[in-house]
Amino acid sequence: MRGLLRTLRSRWKLVLALTVGGFLASAALIVAGAAGLAYTSTEAFCTGCHEMRDTVYAEYKGTIHDQNRTGVRAICTDCHVPREPVALIKRKFEASGELYHHFITGSINTPEKFEAKRYELATHVWKRMKETDSVECRNCHKSDKMNVELQSAKAQARHAKAKTENLTCIDCHFGIAHKEPDGPGPQELFGKAK
């Protein structure tokens, strides 16, 4: 132990260089990681591929989450990527599968191929939302902050029913930003939320 300390003391320049270098490298990695996360969460990045830009993004344009009275928008990541750090990183890693399909298999690289896969892709989103109790919706739409009195009688009744029956947002609010796929919806596919 003393020998090690003596060695370190005699090579203090190397130790200092390694410490400072290690710190700088770690800081650079953290900054690059954060920048990467931020960049891959932008609308520009998500619509960089024609698979998204010409299909789901084109459908989203003009919907309530894109354009509305107040100008508050929900972009791709607001609805499709969780905000919590661990879940966020996990989702980003999962998304690498999308890169694989974009560059290698080209599974949705034509409008026809996309239509053929639309239902399957939608079910992936529905399944995730059922499992997380529609966490992305709830990041903005806090049920405990809803002023029920401002809701229509119908909305009040539906939301009360959803609470009683343990339904989650996506059970009813599906196909609101993109075309509704042809087939059974979340309630029929996955039953009640967990």
Binding site: K154, R158, C172, F174, G175, I176, E180, D182, G183, P184, G185, P186, Q187, E188
Partner: peptide, 12 residues
Amino acid sequence: CTKCHSVSAKKD
């Protein structure tokens, strides 16, 4: 309409 009706899926 779409709040209660879907093209093919179950809603109210």
